[in-house]
């Protein structure tokens, strides 16, 4: 799946996150989270898995986490990647 435009998913609310996806070369994952020290690696693994499942190899995924559960993180990343792969 090719990333062809910028896209955002999620909200600023507590227990949620904002994911921004932009076109890029290779896979870059940037994480901001109050629990980055404890869960940064887990968030990164989830992002890599979702990208792999969708066949995304080139994208910049920026994550601004507000204490979201893993299932929410996965949902918002998937939504942002799918949105970024579609024409507006």
């Amino acid at each position: 799946m090719n990333i062809i435009r910028n896209a955002i998913a999620g909200t600023m609310e507590s227990s949620d996150l904002i994911v921004t996806v932009t076109p890029g070369s290779g896979l870059t994952i940037d994480i901001q989270s109050p629990v980055k020290r404890q869960f940064g690696d887990s968030i990164r693994r989830s992002a890599e898995e979702i990208a792999q499942d969708l066949g995304v190899t080139d994208a910049v995924i920026s994550i601004e986490d507000h204490g979201a559960l893993d299932c929410t993180i996965r949902a918002r990343i998937e939504t942002a990647l799918l949105r970024a792969s579609k024409e507006e």
Partner: peptide, 9 residues
Amino acid sequence: DSARILVRN
């Protein structure tokens, strides 16, 4: 789209 994926998860 976002809600559907969140509810599924």
